[in-house]
């Protein structure tokens, strides 16, 4: 029972991290209908930039803000120079562009930082708890606290602010939003900034959680998150978050705890096919 609960808590943390990555993908899909595979590269860059700043300044706060800023700019650059000009082409064209971006950025990371696994020896300023004999380490509570905070903040931005309203209008119909006086290209860029900044946080969290930063750390999330946005309902941000958390728990429990000999990284896709058969619009997706 103890082991079960511990695994459950680990799964929840992994799910929360998945959620932080998937979220950006769902935001971008919602607004541009593009499968933004290169998002995983932004997450990798986020980890590297965070680590670089941390190594030279030993300030986690500087590391996080610097990395968020860097990634936000990178995200907007990809949007302006790769996606926006390719929007009028069939969807596989921006998708290939996105995959090429992912590969190029991964390679760039390898060329700059080397092919090695770097460690990220930061202490997160969060307390550790012991509840009923189960220890929640400070890393774990940091993952919970930070992801809950980010999700809450995003929820407020998208539902309670004028910016959120403009984002929703743009994702409904870009032409109509523009005719209502919304600068929809600016809104698209803002969406990329937000998604990419959150990816930077995810990159740093993963780096610290596993104490590993390496060039291909985005390879598996790149495609797993695609399955997650389908399971959640394409374009539905709450659905993507829910799907991510469920997957994190399911992976940990089924493979880590129950020891079912399933390939961990295929589980997302198996879940996706099951969901598509049973509920093609996804967990929280509207009918399309």
């Amino acid at each position: 029972m103890q082991l079960f609960l511990e695994q459950m808590l680990n799964g929840l943390a992994i799910g929360a991290i998945y959620a932080l990555i998937t979220l950006g993908l769902a935001l971008v899909y919602g607004i541009l209908r593009i499968l933004h595979v290169a998002h995983a590269a932004i997450y990798t860059v986020g980890a590297y930039v965070g680590l670089a700043i941390f190594s030279s300044t030993h300030s986690l706060a500087l590391s996080v803000t610097g990395s968020m800023l860097f990634c936000a700019i990178l995200g907007v650059l990809i949007e302006r120079f790769v996606y926006y000009p390719l929007l009028k082409f069939p969807p596989y064209v921006p998708l290939i562009g996105s995959i090429a971006c992912l590969l190029a950025i991964e390679e760039l990371c390898r060329m700059v930082a080397g092919p090695y696994i770097l460690s990220f020896p930061a202490e997160l300023p969060f307390p550790s708890f012991t509840i009923g004999g189960i220890v929640i380490s400070s890393t774990l509570s940091a993952v919970y606290g930070i992801s809950a905070g980010v999700l809450l903040l995003l929820w407020i931005i998208t539902t309670k602010t004028e910016l959120g309203l403009a984002m929703r209008a743009t994702s409904q119909d870009m032409a109509i939003a523009s005719s209502m006086g919304i600068n929809s290209h600016w809104i698209i860029s803002v969406t990329f900034m937000i998604g990419s900044a959150v990816a930077a946080i995810a990159g740093i969290l993963v780096g610290i959680y596993y104490n590993q930063v390496y060039p291909t750390m985005g390879a598996v999330p790149a495609y797993k998150t695609l399955a997650l946005i389908v399971v959640g309902g394409l374009g539905s941000v709450p659905g993507a978050v829910l799907a991510s958390i469920l997957l994190g728990i399911a992976e940990t429990l089924l493979i880590g705890y129950a020891g079912i000999p399933l390939p961990r990284d295929a589980l997302a896709f198996i879940a996706m096919i099951a969901v598509l058969l049973w509920r093609p619009q996804g967990l929280l997706g509207g009918r399309r």
Binding site: Y29, R33, Y92, A227, L234, P263, A266, F269, I273, L276
Partner: peptide, 28 residues
């Protein structure tokens, strides 16, 4: 067969899934 029911992006992601699952079958 999924291509008869699914459209565009759903189909695209499903075919990625098929690739991952087939590779896992070979591996496991």
């Amino acid at each position: 067969l999924p291509s008869l029911r699914l459209k565009e992006d759903f189909l695209a992601i499903t075919t990625i899934g098929i690739n991952f699952i087939v590779v896992s079958v070979f591996l496991y």
